[in-house]
Amino acid sequence: MSLIKQDDRITVDTFLEGIWRENPVFVMMLGMCPVLAVTNSAINALAMGLATAFVLVASSLLVSLFRNLIPSEVRIATYIVIISTFVTIVDYTMQALSQEVYNALGAFIQLIVVNCIILGRAEACASRNKPLKSMVNAAGMGLGFTLALLCLGVVREILGSGSLFGLPLFSEQFQPWVVMVLPPGGFLVLGGWLLFFEWLKTRKQYA
């Protein structure tokens, strides 16, 4: 936790941190449950990512605003209440916007409450920084999470269903690789992406 410097300046890095250097999925390996569960299509991945990003930004703002008032003994309980408030708001809003996407995501919207990225941000960043900086950082993390989900969702939908955002890509002869939309496919694709990023990093080090 000492990694986060007590610095009020908002730099480009405050935002970019979550997208690349500390990407919640590919670097910190947090929130694996929704990452593996709802990325069987690109649209589900996008909706889940945006929902999580909204909760992340909104709860970071509230936690940061109240950071000096919350006694440390009850901070976790307070964070959970704040986070679940925004999850409920997302739940209702999504139901009002599109019944179809809401049905597709099922229980995973409610389960954003226990997503450790959000609690982690509240604890490590929002509770130590000013509201604006916390929000910028949370927005970066949320975007990083959304992009990571999309990375998985796009690959799994193309291979597993032969389509992208619901639009068919191949002719009728294409035999979908069904395992890709099933849970094992999530692990395989995640492994593939992790290998890719690790290879990039190693190549950079020795270049």
Binding site: F66, L69, I70, P71, E73, V74, A77, T78, V81, I82
Partner: peptide, 8 residues
């Protein structure tokens, strides 16, 4: 503590 939780 009670006041914080109550308020939140």
């Amino acid at each position: 503590m009670i006041a914080t939780l109550g308020f939140v």
